[in-house]
Amino acid sequence: MIWLKNVSKRYVGDEFDVLALNHINLEIQAGEFVAITGASGSGKSTLLNLIGCMDSASEGELYIDSLPLHQANTGKLDQIRKQYISFVFQHFALLPEFTVYENVEIPLLARSYQRKERRERIREALKRLGIEKYEKKFPDQLSGGQQQRVAIARALVADSPIILADEPTGAIDTKNTEQLMEFLSEINKNGKTVIVVTHSDFVADYAKRVIQLNDGLIIRDSGKEEKSHEKNNQ
């Protein structure tokens, strides 16, 4: 479970002082498929960074499985990220000089899998995403859709319980967007928590819960609405 209690994030520079998140309270249960939406600058990527241990909050408490992220130092955050999180980025974040196979291998190397197991997991993930024939290709030899599949394979292969996707469809066409969201839905059905940051209503429709942000505040949370609806019905 992911739990945020009064979390704020403030960016302070010489000429700016931005409150990106303003006392956010949020609970995401294991196995949920959540879409975080909002306009540019609303704080959605900041929220994802905090959950993904890529950044730390200025204020408030954050927990993943009861582990307090707000009290963790960089080394501890690295360990929590390694144990719980996999990322999918808008621009794929593949290493251009490494092959598809090598790119997908990176998370497994970090998690100290044996060579044979690494090979099996990589082949399985590539096959699942229909890109097994590209394993020796380099990212720039693939289309945007294929590269995003490689990025998803890389996120899948580590078997992390939480998949964070930041605008995963932002750099691919409609057909590939649909396929990608089907993959993410399937991953979610297999028990993973999937959190997607998106501008697109089409993408958000795949999620079971939609959280809308505006100026660092949650202005809509379909999960809460359902709960209160259920409460009212009772």
Partner: peptide, 16 residues
């Protein structure tokens, strides 16, 4: 810089 970021996002630690 990006490589370090990618490795970190893939579960590598700063020490690694």
């Amino acid at each position: 810089k990006q490589m370090f970021g990618i490795l970190l996002s893939c579960g590598w630690t700063g020490r690694d």
